[in-house]
Write a protein that binds this DNA or RNA. Structure first.
Lengths: 334, 334
DNA sequence: TGAATGTGAGAAAAGGTTTTCACAAATGTA
DNA sequence: TACATTTGTGAAAACCTTTTCTCACATTCA
């Protein structure tokens, strides 16, 4: 391929100064119609495209927004990403995604890369760094938004959810259905997300006088496997009529273990999940769980990022969750 | 924050020429130890980091490798991405991911963005562009690798799989288990991936004298929903003892419909999937499906990308799939 | 001793854009 | 007509790095 034409060559072709060409491409109003047309025509003829690096170099900033995930395979991220991308694209930004795979070093490395690249904004999901480390990293030219976590002293730049409330709500739904002995299967509680859900479960017990029935299995990770293992172990060593799982994967694993034990769902054991993955509706029985509209959340995050970049307050609130009642729970009051 | 220090300032601080500083940071051997130490010390003191844009501008290339996906939520992409990233990071490249959401325009737009950014290499998954359009786009300075598709006239830069063979294998497994009437639920057959699997199914029938039993449901998309709809409709209008689905999601949907019809799996109907998503093992019954090692495939794709960039042939073959036999199929010969 | 070779370092150009400043032309005001 | 204002344009500096070209000096070899 031939070398790409530069702005200078376009200027020569159109017999105007480089400054004028630059103005044309930056929608500077101070250039008259005839000139503008001549420049555009010349640029088209040459196949000119502005060199992003030269522009970034001189401007000291870009129109890139970057997002750091933990892992790509986390289902709901994808709709969130789509929501974010939709919003920021409309505002003229380009959107890139990368992942840390839960490594603190990768997190720092990737964020620094975004900084080095003068990104216009960065959205991060961090599980490796402490609150103070995040605040430390944030002290920079690049606006940062922390997703799915409330960072102490950095709340204005965080988008987070009231997991406590929603886990509590769904456990209370079980309680209203007559369940007194409820097993709770939680993800690794050193992560805020899971710890909040656990406290939601405990609040629900407390407020209904069931604290003595507390029964919790803590998993190393929130996977199908661990849900299976947890339920299996608890079935052997304790009694309960319902299992409240902190996500749908755990619930699927648990359901598998319940059946293996010769019990049926929901007749013998009720099960709830959290997240409403697509399979939840098609599981047997279909799973009662907490749904959130990931796409809307994504759009919200996008708007929040833009508001941080433009330093304008965003008054809008985070979208709420809803409980989806399906067939995995049974009312056991007679 | 303060302005970032430039190479020039480091040069001044270390009392050497900018050229020397540049040489130090580019591991040019022609600089003696004493100077090198002085430069490094000065750079550290100032917190210098080389400006990626200035470097990209002058070098006309970058150490970025980009990947274009259709959608992030496609499960197995994530392990593939991880594999690719592992390999290319080790080779000194940075890795970015973006998505097209099946839009042809987005595909072209994103690829062009990678081009504009002088990426060192681009990996694409395309469903929107025709073979010739892909070949057309490829004519450029940026090496391109097409994943999961065989593009006519561009085979050397493609990584693709023999889906025909694997779909055929698993259907033949059903046949060996005595099944004569097998429903095939396929994704949209205008996509190569699904069309190949369909032809695999048909070959299996042909070679076993079962062509007259052909029974195919074509879905608009390969989702849980469509699997459910397809199975439901076919259950009402045709007879079969097994369902071979083109992916696990379709299989889960189909299983749901089978149960709703009052039939059990695998006693009345055997079901197979394709892909082996994590849930496959924990479904009830566990799903017989085709497994591929996504991480290995990712690493292979990474190596392939590097080989294209360095213009060295890669002799290694694509990793193969394996059939995982679980409990969703039954041998119905007596 | 003189030439050839090698080594380390600086000067300066190049890469493509944006932006400030100055200036000229056109328009408006008195 | 003289002056002030507005509008459109170009020249040139700036952004930060890499790389080519020189040059000075030291070493080796005949």
């Amino acid at each position: 391929m031939d070398k790409k034409p530069s702005l200078l060559e376009v200027a020569k072709e159109a017999r105007v100064s480089p400054a004028t060409v630059s103005r044309v491409f930056n929608d500077n109003p101070k250039v008259n119609e005839e000139m503008r047309a001549r420049v555009i025509e010349a640029a088209e003829r040459l196949g000119y495209k502005t060199n992003i690096y030269a522009k970034a170099l001189i401007e000291g900033r870009t129109n890139f927004i970057g997002m750091l995930l933990t892992r790509f395979e986390i289902r709901h991220y994808s709709s969130i990403i789509y929501g974010i991308e939709t919003v920021v694209n409309k505002a003229g930004y380009r959107f890139f995604v990368t992942s840390s795979r839960y490594s603190k070093e990768k997190e720092e490395e990737k964020i620094n890369l975004f900084y080095d690249l003068n990104f216009a904004g960065v959205i991060i999901i961090s599980v490796g760094m402490s609150d103070s480390e995040i605040v430390g990293m944030a002290d920079n030219n690049v606006p940062m938004l922390v997703f799915d976590r409330k960072v102490e002293g950095y709340e204005k730049n965080c988008v987070y959810f009231d997991y406590h409330k929603f886990q509590k709500d769904i456990v209370e739904l079980l309680i209203r259905n007559g369940h007194r002995k409820i097993l709770h299967i939680t993800g690794p509680t050193d992560l805020q997300v899971y710890d909040e859900k656990l406290s939601g479960y405990l609040s629900a017990l407390d407020e209904n006088g069931l604290r003595e029935n507390e029964n919790v299995f803590i998993c190393d990770n929130a996977s199908n496997e661990m849900g299976y293992e947890g339920a299996k172990e608890k079935l052997a060593n304790s009694e309960f009529t319902a299992i409240a799982c902190q996500n749908d994967q755990l619930a699927f694993g648990a359901m598998c273990a319940v059946r293996e034990a010769g019990l049926s769902i929901p007749e013998d054991i009720s099960v709830t999940g959290f997240g409403d993955v697509p399979e939840a509706k098609y599981a047997t029985p279909s799973l009662t769980t907490v749904n959130f509209d990931h796409y809307s959340i994504g759009k919200y995050v996008g708007r929040k990022m833009l508001s941080i970049i433009s330093k304008k307050e965003l008054t809008e609130k985070v979208p709420e969750f809803t409980i989806v009642e399906r067939n995995s729970i049974k009312d056991i009051r007679r």
